[in-house]
Amino acid sequence: MKERKRLGKYFALLLVIAIIAILPASCFAMSKKDGSIRSGVLTYLGTTESEFQAALDDLRKAVAPLIPTDEERDSWEHEDRLEGFISSLVQTRREVSFFDSLLAMQMALRSRKLDEIVLPECTGLYLINSNSNYDVLFSLNLMPSSISFGFRRNDTALKKEFDGAIAAMKKDGTLSRLESQYISEAGSEPVPVKFQDFKGAQVIKVAVTGDLPPIDFIASDGTPAGYNTAILSEIGKRLKKNVRLISVDAGGRSAALASKRADVVFWYRNSGDLKLPAKANKVNSKAMRNVMKDNLDGVILSSPYYEWDTDLIIGRSN
């Protein structure tokens, strides 16, 4: 009996220690540390949050010499000076959180769990046009990004066909026409496109999330719409294949692709090197290399069909 009581005490003590060990991680997640700014970023598939954070810290060190001293200030050329976000980054460290969906990220911003969120220019503009609670804090021309189609590694034939169609669309101007129709000149919500039906032809299943308007978007009648679907409809027409859209939660995309529930997913990635001012140090850390390269297991990407240089840093209006 005594033995049992003693064991019980040890067990209770162990439980208390375990709870204390777990607490800091869960209680203080996304809490503000040392006055840093909390930034939300859409999950970079292929890298981790801590790696992204390390890369950003390295970037911060690299751009630190770009703050001119008072004597230097007058003699520096315009392009040597820091503008906007980079200047702010030097002054205040960013603490990055990854979000699977724009929706969750937007709610974190609204509820003050985040101070700013980073979005592609077109999505950022869509957000501030639809909701007056948000405003652009900075424009960021640091990292060129793009969207490609992702396929299973062994699906090289399909990738080749898509690459061919994208190249042809670039050449004959279809891509830029659709881009201006659905992105740059899109007044309001995108309209759904019609998909041509090819009897007996192969069906390509494409996973859409509806979470990145106006690129990946689901209209009010529940149909996928937006730039992605317009591109897909055009590719379907050119390849004479049927395209079937399946709507999947952002977190389920990789599983859908790997398990053959979907043949194609949309892949958001960095494309090209960091664009730093001439006076900045080179960032060549392991973390930054990992963030910049596509660390893709089991996925191959088509050539990009939408590229942008500018990301918007968005915060609350007030």
């Binding site: 869509y126 639809s130 509806g210 308007p213 689901i218 209209a219 939660d249």
Partner: peptide
């Protein structure tokens, strides 16, 4: 839930 999420993304009014 998915419909609600889609509407929130479309209107950008999640709350």
């Amino acid at each position: 839930t998915r419909v609600i999420n889609n509407i929130a993304s479309r209107t950008m009014q999640p709350m």
